[in-house]
């Protein structure tokens, strides 16, 4: 949905004057909303309409035209106005699509990417009817408790360099979570995030390649933020930031903004300086390090060994029996650890 400049400004003014009633003239003249009104002769009408638009977005606003309006509560939703205000990025999330409910953000993102939306476009949903993990493993995503998002990128890199984008995204989510909550997540190669021995976030990348050229990349990520409990089938393996912070609620909007901020910075660095730069900071957050693991590399083949970090191409380094060299595994899934 589109949000007008008028509504954006109105939210800003109401927030800055939380719990105070502001009348028509205070808003229009005192706070300068008149300047951004569509029709200067019908500002009063614009104001009443804009308040209704905000109420529909979940903002609790008391009052009316005679008493003036007062913001009671900002909704705990990932809505357009909240995400956009305070976003520090220059291109990530600057084109923004928010959904209350969506089949899956990746499916819609793919369609939008094919339709040519700008580089850095972001899709965010409160609820995914069909949350997808890898190969359509379902992801438990109850409404309003997490961040389910997809970014559309058009990096000018070759297909073989794409693998590190997921790793970079997972790393940036780590940094954002650390900053916001003080928790210390770890990164399980190639792109899952763990707190203790439970997963709380994951990254799913998809791309479209034609004639050897990357048309688009969909960088999808899901973060369990305020989920209070999990169904029994996954409670031993899944967690949320709220559970890990002893029940304390985490502000999703500000976490999402931090993720975008870190990711944009990381993305620019990756494109200019390469991936090696990130390695030291990734190694100290490596969940698999020094663990005995088994990796399925496709075609029914598996490799067993001890995980010894990640190399400059984003491959998992394995210490394997009967070899003095570490083996770099670029492709595969860790099936035992």
């Amino acid at each position: 949905m589109s949000v007008s400049e008028f509504e954006k400004r109105l939210v800003g003014v109401l927030k800055a004057n939380c719990h105070r009633y502001l009348g028509e003239s205070a808003l229009l003249v005192g706070h300068g909303l008149q300047e951004v009104a569509d029709t200067s002769t019908e500002c009063g009408h614009d104001l009443a309409r804009a308040v209704e638009v905000l109420r529909l977005q979940g903002y609790e606003i008391d009052g009316d035209q005679t008493r003036g309006w007062c913001l009671i509560r900002v909704p705990d939703t990932l809505n357009y106005l909240e995400i956009e205000s305070g976003l520090k990025t220059t291109f990530l999330g600057r084109s923004l699509f928010t959904y209350r409910i969506i089949g899956s953000t990746s499916d819609t993102a793919k369609m939008l990417a094919e339709a040519g939306v700008p580089d850095g476009s972001l899709l965010v949903a409160e609820e995914q009817a069909r949350g997808r993990g890898r190969f359509e493993n379902t992801w438990y995503s109850p409404p309003g408790t997490g961040i389910w998002a997809s970014l559309i990128l058009r990096p000018g890199i070759s297909p073989s360099q794409l693998g590190i984008l997921g790793l970079l995204c997972a790393f940036c989510i780590c940094l954002a979570v650390e900053e916001q909550t003080g928790l210390r997540p770890r990164l399980k190669w190639p792109n899952d995030l763990y707190l203790g021995d439970r997963k709380f976030a994951g990254v799913l990348c998809e791309s479209g390649i034609q004639a050897g050229r990357v048309k688009y990349v969909i960088l999808g990520f899901g973060v369990n933020v305020n989920i209070e409990s999990f169904p029994e089938s996954v409670s031993g393996t899944a967690t949320s930031l709220r559970i890990a912070s002893a029940g304390e609620r985490v502000d999703r909007v500000s976490l999402l903004q931090k993720i975008l901020d870190k990711l944009e910075e990381g993305y620019f660095k990756l494109l200019t300086d390469g991936f090696s730069l990130f390695l030291p900071r990734i190694q100290v957050r490596d969940y698999l390090r020094d663990r005995k693991v088994t990796v399925a590399t496709g075609g029914g083949e598996t490799i067993g060994g001890i995980a010894r970090g990640i190399d400059e191409n984003g491959a998992l380094l394995l210490e394997v029996p009967e070899s003095s060299h570490l083996r770099a595994v670029a492709q595969g899934r860790v099936v035992e650890y």
Partner: peptide, 26 residues
């Protein structure tokens, strides 16, 4: 590759004459 699902899209119209690799092979 590394949990990145890459859709390979057709670059020219035509008829598929041969699929040279088995499913799920590296």
């Amino acid at each position: 590759a590394m949990k990145l699902m890459n859709e390979l899209q057709c670059e020219a119209a035509g008829v598929i004459r041969e699929i040279c690799v088995e499913n799920a092979q590296p």
